[in-house]
Nucleic acid binder design. Sequence first.
DNA 1: GTCTGTCGGTTGTGTATACAACTCTAATAC
DNA 2: GTATTAGAGTTGTATACACAACCGACAGAC
Lengths: 250, 250
Amino acid sequence: MYTTLIQVRTIRYHHIADELRSRVQSGVYASGRLLPSESELSSEFSMSRVTVRKALELLRDEGLVDSRQGFGWFVAGEPVRQPLGRLATIEDQMRASGMTPERHVLEFAFEKAPRDVARALGTPNVLRVLRINLADGEPFAVVTVWCAAERGQHLSRADVERTPFYELLDVPLEGATQTIAADAATKSEATHLNVPEGAPVLRCRRVTTGSDGKPVLVSHHVFPGHRTEFVVDLPSAEPSIAPSGLRLVE
Amino acid sequence: MYTTLIQVRTIRYHHIADELRSRVQSGVYASGRLLPSESELSSEFSMSRVTVRKALELLRDEGLVDSRQGFGWFVAGEPVRQPLGRLATIEDQMRASGMTPERHVLEFAFEKAPRDVARALGTPNVLRVLRINLADGEPFAVVTVWCAAERGQHLSRADVERTPFYELLDVPLEGATQTIAADAATKSEATHLNVPEGAPVLRCRRVTTGSDGKPVLVSHHVFPGHRTEFVVDLPSAEPSIAPSGLRLVE
DNA sequence: GTCTGTCGGTTGTGTATACAACTCTAATAC
DNA sequence: GTATTAGAGTTGTATACACAACCGACAGAC
């Protein structure tokens, strides 16, 4: 029997990424620690700077490292766990993780709603609030909330910066439906969240309904993928213990 | 009063990305449709091919387009919605979206578990099954399932390819705890899911417990960000209607 | 002490070029 | 008819170079 040896190309930027990932995971580079500069890595690995960058960008997309122009590349931190089934605000959750929460309203405007929002709220005239949640001074989430203008006219910008919408609204709430997806950060999200465009984010869309079953709030929450993860308790699908809203998917 | 005009640099690859995104969203390029080649776009926009690629990669990270080496860039498809609170399998969900589900076992091995899995299952001796779920012949999810070897020894590879673990297990299930995070696809995930390394994925980790409250299964599910999203019903936090497992986060 | 500007070094964007790896079509051989 | 190969065109990786935008440290002015 005859065999053939073939020379297979190895992808150089993967080698760099693998080596750097290994150093981070073994603790050589601790959380928050600055990595060697692109130029230094280029010398160390005898590869062009573009190849080094390609490796670093791969690791950034994994959430393992991050960069600031002019400053350098550094190891990113640990995600905050947000239980979906627990009565806690984002701020409560940050405090439980030992972080200092902050909330800033970026935009507060009465305007015409996007079509899907208008359809959900039953009116195109809405109050839109764009706000950012910070944890220890760092961006944690960008949140856009829409409510009908009729309701929003009673709310001040200072109100919504100080107090969650749910506590401000004059209507009892029945619940919400939320979608959770992974996506790449858009330019403006990236700017607000201080992550690169294209970085993985959790994109949540929520419609909150009042006790009459009608939507009263639509909100979009965007979290950097490396900063948070959700936890869900999924009770068994056995009829005797099934709760009203949840089932085991698989 | 005097003012100063400053010339601000515009980032060229964003212009290309914005234009292409607009064409996709307006239907000029339909779902699945091949885009102009990099070379053609380079001519059209009078920019270097590297700049064109940067724009296309941005859109790929958004899940809007995808590429195959040698074939070209094309518009990607629509995500499948997976309710977390519904008694349905991944396969049921695909069928509901008009797709044909398939399931293939890639690896079936008795081995030593990773530390966290060993700790959860109470033993390092496990059966690990790596499988891929396809929708219409396209990769939809990569799933790794671990169960104790004691239990797994009664299961054949054909068993787990044909039937979900939950139906195969000889123990009543109480429920599961699942985390949901956004991350960038690793090299091997990317290969199995036919997405580029670094593309956004939903990474779910699940621990399924038996009726005695002990974990019987650990599983990791990875979904390409552009292929699926989760839907959760979040009943209100009002004490009178709060279910056992879920609360409104905010 | 604070404020401003400079400098060296850093990351981010962009061009040109080259070659590897892949895809599809058409031509040729059987 | 099928199978194979060549060629043109495509995306993917990599180098070299250049410049923009940013950062932090330091020096000088007040």
